[in-house]
Structures are given as C-alpha cells and as structure tokens.
C-alpha cells in the first residue's frame, strides 16, 4: 500500500503540489519515503536537506500527526499501512 505525503507552505510551492503519493510502504522507513519524495524534486530537496544531505533542523516531519524527529525514531521510523506523512517548515500561526 502506497504512502501519502502532505506538503505545506513554501515546501508545497517548491514541489508544485500539496500531496504526493510514494511507493514506500509498511516495512520501509520514513527516510525511504522522503528519499522517494525528493528524488525528482531538486528545488524541494535544496530546501529540506543541508549540504551533507541531512534534514535541516527547522523542517518538521510528522507521521499521522506525530513528530517522528521528537517522539519516534526519526527518519528510521518504520512505516505502517496507510500512514500519512507531512513535511513542513516552522509553524507561524497567530
């Protein structure tokens, strides 16, 4: 079963779309899904990864509403069936 990414703010603008479906599925990791998302999207990749290819500190990655970088195993977090992933910059409500 495929996995869906939701993109927000300037990340969605750089990707040219707000939703992207990738083939990474249960058993793969969040990092696999991210790699697939960034594969043909260099504009988005430059925004999300630093020169070393690591995730920039201000970028948030959520899996089903939970921040994988804080509450789970980061990009090593394993996917489950039907996961919804989200990628966004610092929040700026109010």
């Amino acid at each position: 079963m495929a996995t869906e990414w939701k993109l927000f703010a300037d990340l969605a603008e750089r990707a040219g779309e707000k939703r992207v479906t990738v083939e990474a599925a249960a058993g793969d990791t969040v990092g696999d899904a991210l790699e697939e998302l960034l594969a043909d999207r260099s504009d988005l990749e430059d925004r999300v990864l630093d020169e070393e290819g690591d995730l920039r500190s201000q970028i948030n990655v959520l899996r089903n509403g939970t921040n994988v970088l804080i509450e789970e195993e980061g990009l090593e977090t394993e996917l489950e069936d039907g996961d919804e992933l989200a990628l966004f910059p610092p929040v700026s409500g109010g």
Binding site: A9, N60, L62, F88, P89, G93
Partner: peptide
C-alpha cells in the same frame, strides 16, 4: 505547536513569514 502557516502580502511583496 499548531501547524498553521502564514503568508504575508504587503503592497510591495509577498513572503512566508517563517522565512
């Protein structure tokens, strides 16, 4: 904590506020 994103549009420019 709440995932809300703000774009500001001024008479001269438009930009995402987190930038």
């Amino acid at each position: 904590e709440v995932p809300l994103f703000k774009k500001e549009v001024t008479v001269e420019d438009e930009f995402w506020v987190h930038d």
